[in-house]
Design a protein around this nucleic acid. Structure first.
Lengths: 216, 216
DNA sequence: TAGATTGTTAATCGATTAACAATC
DNA sequence: TAGATTGTTAATCGATTAACAATC
């Protein structure tokens, strides 16, 4: 299980996503065809040099006295992050969170297509969510093979997560998006992104307490 | 709007949460009263010196030749992050994601209590979720004042998020947990944690592409 | 005591920021 | 041209890692 991506570091990926959203908005709103690194930096509360360095890292060059072409930056980010090379995922655990994720319409623009929903609860099997029918987990391996799915989105309760992850890995899954509140132990060649809500909670709790203590 | 907490840096907070979960598990499972920095480091794929530095930063001292007392570390982390100083939040937007969050039972152990659910849709008003009745957004300010709520959890569609955030701020909210897929522009004294799902997507997409290109 | 593990100082590493010539 | 903005080199800063004496 590798947590740190090689190549582009995590902090850079996060900043790239931020640029991406900002520039997509600018472009859609027709607010101009170019931006300067200073404009982007101001919005992100960071340094203009950092913005130029980040963009240079993904091969975008700006124009002196003008700035960067929004459309060019957007497509360079899509290319660097691979959004135009679609991949498929199975989603396991169609509870509240699982069905919220299954019904999210925005994934396709990032290259993700959900090709199967699974649950071990017979009551949930057969329900329809996001245009897909919920299947029993026993059929996971088949669907993964049929659709060449490379990712599993795990939305089961914490106590079932490891079992489900093992099942996904044995079906050939190479990346796991883990929404269960537990760590997973997995082979080194399986990439895991752990989306634990408590990290956000910790940051907020810490901040509110700092503020209450007069250091905020 | 300040994104970087002073004092403990974000990466440190994240590692502390990881230690916390690991050590809570160890304690609950009765797997021993102490751990060494090396054991923790191995599990987190990091360096033992870093673990000791992190724990020193929150005032925990270990015992040479023994390690750290799990219970002591856990309570030091709770103290550093403020989990034992409860605070209240209102949740706005009771769609799929909002109701999944409203029904999550684990918040109280991190000090968070949800004291009100709100929605602008009259159809949703009156529904019950997580033991609370959904109220119209017009009553937000009243509930915030009554319960001394300091946080707003925003789960409305992106296009409504700024409006709802402004409303929360004018009601006296000091921190926002933003699940809407959009940036918010807010006063400097309001702390924002943006929980954008696309960051996780970007990391996964990038990784899968690197793997496909043979660099993974 | 010998061995294991800590706490801390020093060294390294990488990321961010500053400075500034090059360019349009 | 003058002014604005880039790209890049050098300087700074902070975080991580290595080394090792102190401790149980």
């Amino acid at each position: 299980m590798r947590n740190a991506p090689d190549g582009l570091r995590h902090a850079l990926l996060e900043r790239l996503m931020h640029y991406y959203h900002f520039l997509s908005d600018v472009t859609e709103a027709g607010l101009g065809e170019t931006v300067t690194s200073g404009q982007v930096a101001e919005l992100m509360h960071t340094d203009d040099t950092l913005v130029r360095k980040d963009l240079a890292a993904i091969g975008v060059r700006g124009l002196p006295n003008v700035g960067f072409k929004c459309a060019e930056v957007v497509s360079a980010i899509r290319d660097a992050l691979g959004f135009d090379h679609p991949y498929r995922a199975v989603l396991i655990g169609v509870g509240r969170l699982g069905s919220a994720i299954a019904s999210y319409r925005g994934f396709s623009s990032y290259g993700l297509e959900i090709c199967g929903l699974f649950d071990k609860d017979p009551v949930k099997v057969g329900l329809v969510g996001g245009g897909l029918v919920v299947l029993p987990v026993q059929r996971l391996a088949l669907v993964v093979a049929q659709h060449h799915a490379s990712m599993a989105i795990i939305c089961v309760p914490a106590e079932d997560a490891q079992e489900v992850a093992d099942l996904a890995v044995s079906a050939g899954i190479k990346a796991i998006w883990n929404f269960a509140a537990t760590d997973l132990v997995l082979p080194d060649d399986v990439f895991v992104r752990h989306e634990h809500i408590s990290v956000g909670l910790a940051v907020l709790s810490y901040h509110l307490n700092q503020a209450a203590r007069g250091n905020g």
